[in-house]
């Protein structure tokens, strides 16, 4: 196996923004090896880079590793993770967080990854063709691109709703299918099915429990036996005592902070 030959140690190299950066960050990288590789991070071609500075973007990383060879894709994420990223359909995209990130760089060829692992120096992030967007320029761009035409917004809304409706329909269909008896004769009970059931939520559960409790209480007799009366009287005194004890504690606390020295 080719991968076995590769060293598993993490390599550390300095990553400059421009040629004349004085105090660059050190990035650490190694081959991305996990038990189950996903499609977007194929085995043997993926490089995991951590401590990527906040201002670096995908193209910048391609710039940095350009000596190793051509890069197929770059994924930036907050933490290195093995799990497949689930794509939830969002209407409002998640906010971009400026912070240190991890990157998965997928090279086109296996050999290029080998080369990358043997690099002794990284190129700066900025190149003539592409510069990192930072500072005022970035904010201006962000602001300007946040303003969208009503028409565009409308289109966005419509496509999203269409998609959502389709998904919802699919889910409905799936539920309906579940209602059918399966091979062993089991039927899954769902909200819309023929078999009536209650919603399984905390609120409903609590309600049922409360009802039970109430029923229990109704069966009891109160202040009927002498001992009950005696007990209720005692309870009153106990509550008074409890209050007294609490107040005493409070006083002790205030005393501790020497707040009874008025002057």
């Amino acid at each position: 196996m080719k991968a076995a030959k590769r060293t598993q140690d993490v390599k550390a190299l300095e990553l400059q923004l421009t040629e004349d950066s004085v105090a660059p960050h050190t990035v650490y990288f190694k081959e991305h090896i996990v038990r189950e590789h996903t499609k977007d991070k194929p085995q043997g071609r993926t490089l995991l880079v951590v401590n990527v500075p906040p201002y670096a973007d995908e193209k910048g990383l391609i710039n940095a590793f350009r000596e190793a060879g051509s890069v197929q894709s770059v994924q930036l994420c907050l933490k290195p993770s093995t799990a497949d990223v689930k794509h939830i359909m969002r209407f409002i995209p998640e906010e971009k967080i400026t912070t240190f990130r991890a990157a998965y760089i997928v090279f086109k060829k296996v050999a290029e990854l080998d080369k990358a692992l043997k690099l002794t120096e990284l190129q700066p992030l900025n190149s003539n063709a592409h510069q990192m967007q930072v500072g005022i320029k970035k904010w201006i761009n962000e602001y300007n691109s946040s303003i969208i035409l009503p028409k565009t917004l409308k289109e966005n809304v419509e496509t999203f709703m269409k998609q959502f409706d389709e998904n919802a329909q699919k889910a409905d269909k799936k539920e309906k299918e579940l209602e059918q008896e399966d091979d062993e004769g089991w039927v899954t009970v769902t909200k819309r099915g023929k078999v009536q059931s209650f919603a399984r939520s905390e609120k409903v559960e609590n309600k049922i429990m409360q009802k039970e409790e109430k029923n229990k209480k109704r069966k009891e007799l109160k202040n009927f036996y002498t001992f009950q009366i005696r007990e209720s009287k005692m309870k009153h005194i106990v509550s008074l005592r409890q209050k007294f004890e609490e107040d005493k504690k409070k006083i002790a606390q205030i005393k501790q902070s020497r707040r009874f020295k008025p002057f």
């Binding site: 923004l17 950066s21 004085v22 105090a23 660059p24 960050h25 050190t26 500075p53 906040p54 201002y55 400026t98 990192m132 930072v134 500072g135 005022i136 320029k137």
Partner: peptide, 18 residues
């Protein structure tokens, strides 16, 4: 922690403002 790089970063992120 690479303090010098952090200070350099402050300058980079605030490009045009600092």
């Amino acid at each position: 922690v690479n303090i010098e790089a952090l200070i350099e970063d402050f300058r980079i992120l605030g490009d045009g403002l600092v």
